[in-house]
């Protein structure tokens, strides 16, 4: 089995003393799509930040796409293989045109300009934003902003995609579009989201985090259908799974 991501005994405490992650251990295979769910404050975002090398854990080991984030030289190489899409797209869209913003990452990798332009074109095409290439990010809708932020990460051609609350502020159409785009991407994905139906549409596996601990890890449908597990950790069984179990559920007026 080839692990693209290995985490062993990961613990992180924020300055101020809040323990966000406590002894988290898991492995992810190349090409897997994994949902990270849990109540607010469970440590989902912190986990993604640790994996991307943005914050350094106090204890434990991470091996992501062959890199160890604790090693400074290796940490700088992580953006070549790992892309993190932030929950607020405005944090990520720093340039004055979508095109320049998508080119930001590849330019930082020191790629030749022709290659940068090729990657920008491909990334914009992948998210269906060619028409908005020269628009100001501020003028985009939430869905377009999210896709522009995703394009900025895809242009780096990552092997692992980390997505933090990707459906935040998206309307149903933009959410459906995002599901379609993500399902077409042939990369390993870790998706931290409260949107359980969205997770079901993309992922095969799920982690349940609560109070910084990994409390469950398994096939997504099996975990999400476990009502006692979901309720014990501030979640609920997604409606689609309830309906598939009980054909009358949801049809009552």
């Amino acid at each position: 089995m080839s692990w693209i991501l290995e985490v062993q005994g990961l613990s992180y405490t924020w300055p101020g003393g809040f323990s966000a992650l406590e002894d988290v251990t898991f492995q992810v295979t190349t090409g897997e799509s994994v949902a990270v769910v849990g109540p607010n404050g469970a440590g989902k975002t912190t986990l993604l930040l640790c994996l991307a090398g943005v914050v350094l854990p106090q204890r434990g080991q991470i091996r992501i796409a062959g890199f160890d984030p604790r090693d400074s030289a290796q940490r700088q190489q992580i953006p070549r293989k790992v892309g993190l899409v932030f929950s607020d797209s405005d944090d990520q869209l720093i340039h004055w045109t979508v095109y320049d913003d998508v080119a930001f990452g590849p330019l930082n990798l020191g790629l030749p300009e022709a290659e940068v332009r090729r990657r920008v074109q491909r990334a914009l095409q992948a998210v269906g934003l060619e028409h908005a290439a020269f628009r100001v990010p501020f003028h985009l809708s939430s869905g377009e902003k999210k896709r522009a932020a995703l394009a900025g990460v895809l242009a780096m051609e990552p092997e692992i995609l980390l997505l933090d609350e990707p459906t935040l502020h998206l309307d149903p159409r933009a959410r459906r579009e995002l599901i379609r785009i993500l399902n077409r991407l042939d990369v390993t994905k870790l998706i931290a989201s409260h949107d359980l139906e969205f997770n079901l549409a993309i992922c095969q596996r799920a982690f349940v985090l609560d109070q910084g601990r990994l409390v469950a890890d398994g096939p997504i449908r099996k975990l999400f259908a476990n009502a006692s597990l979901m309720e014990a950790h501030g979640l609920e069984v997604p409606l689609s799974l309830v309906q598939s179990r009980d054909p009358l559920a949801g049809s009552a007026s």
Binding site: G83, D100, R117, M156
Partner: peptide, 23 residues
């Protein structure tokens, strides 16, 4: 807080302090 998040997002896209733009 936003400035901190923007800096994190820039680092995640390999920003190392030098602004590079298309020619």
């Amino acid at each position: 807080e936003r400035a901190e998040r923007v800096a994190q997002a820039m680092r995640c896209r390999a920003f190392a302090g030098q602004l590079r733009l298309l020619s």
